[in-house]
């Protein structure tokens, strides 16, 4: 009999968790190394560029706040795509991906909220206002916590996968609300200055470190995400093995 091949030739080959684990083992050190290099460059740029004429030194908060806020939304989008993968294609790794992404998304949303608050105090004169942008990001944070709680509360992973996939897709309505809240409503939070139809409106001096930090944060997310997915696959294998062991022990008990 021929050995089953672990080579990945097409996207659907990743449906096999063993193949996925083999790919993660090869990819993650490269991703982690690249992330570290980009953070080194990003942090160097973040602290060597000049301060803003209005914001002064606090402009440097933007280099962690904006990438964290971007990741908060991107992570939820990854979860929504995974939810589609669970409900439409029944991809075996889609639910693993959504479950692994939730705690990472919650952490980046928390960073966005904390750093935003630390920028708001010296610039707006307040730590927090219930304006549309801040409130909708806070709701996103609560949604992440809800997803984590839901996944932990249900014992049957197949049922939990379907219920959380539906909830993730319903909750996706919040993402365009966050993005366009600064245009639809009168908010204290400033409107978009990087991702705009007419191009970025901020100076290249600030845009360079911001983009490098955004790519570094994005790579950090993907590194952590594939590693968290690997942990989740191992967790499920352990659960299956324990079930088999319990069943085997039960059969032996009956035979005796």
């Amino acid at each position: 009999m021929s050995e089953p091949s672990l080579a990945i030739r097409k996207f659907s080959d990743l449906a096999n968790p063993t193949r996925f684990l083999a790919l993660v083992a090869i990819v993650w050190p490269w991703l982690a190394g690249l992330t570290l290099c980009l953070f080194a460059v990003g942090l160097y740029l973040a602290f060597t560029t000049v301060g803003d004429y209005q914001q002064g030194e606090t402009v440097r908060i933007m280099y962690v706040h904006v990438p964290a806020a971007w990741l908060a939304m991107m992570c939820y989008t990854v979860m929504a795509l995974s939810a589609l993968g669970t409900l439409v294609w029944r991809h075996p790794l889609a639910d693993v991906s959504a479950k692994a992404a939730a705690p990472i998304g919650a952490c980046f949303t928390l960073v966005a909220l904390i750093t935003g608050s630390l920028w708001g105090k010296p610039m707006w004169g307040t730590w927090w206002v219930w304006d549309a942008r801040l409130t909708s990001v806070f709701v996103l944070f609560l949604m992440y916590l809800g997803m984590i709680a839901l996944n932990r509360a249900m014992d049957d992973p197949t049922r939990a996968a379907k219920v959380s996939a539906v909830l993730i897709l319903v909750g996706f309505v919040n993402i365009p609300i966050i993005k366009f809240s600064v245009e639809w409503w009168n908010t204290l939070h400033q409107p978009a200055s990087v991702i705009r139809l007419d191009g970025p409106t901020i100076s290249a001096e600030f845009l360079r470190p911001l983009l490098v930090m955004a790519i570094a944060f994005t790579l950090l997310f993907f590194t952590l995400h594939i590693l968290a997915m690997r942990n989740e696959i191992l967790r499920r294998r352990i659960a299956v093995l324990r079930r088999h062991a319990a069943r085997a022990a039960g059969r032996e008990g009956d035979a005796a």
């Binding site: 606090t58 908060i61 962690v64 952490c107 928390l110 950090l220 952590l224 590693l227 968290a228």
Partner: peptide, 30 residues
């Protein structure tokens, strides 16, 4: 301003390190 900038970077660094530790310890345990 330096206080707010430092606090922001410490917060971002701590949460990122916490995440990395969580993923690493979880893997070691499993």
């Amino acid at each position: 301003h330096a206080f707010y900038v430092t606090a922001s970077y410490i917060a971002a660094f701590s949460v990122s390190i916490g995440l990395i530790l969580w993923v690493w310890l979880d893997h070691r345990g499993r």
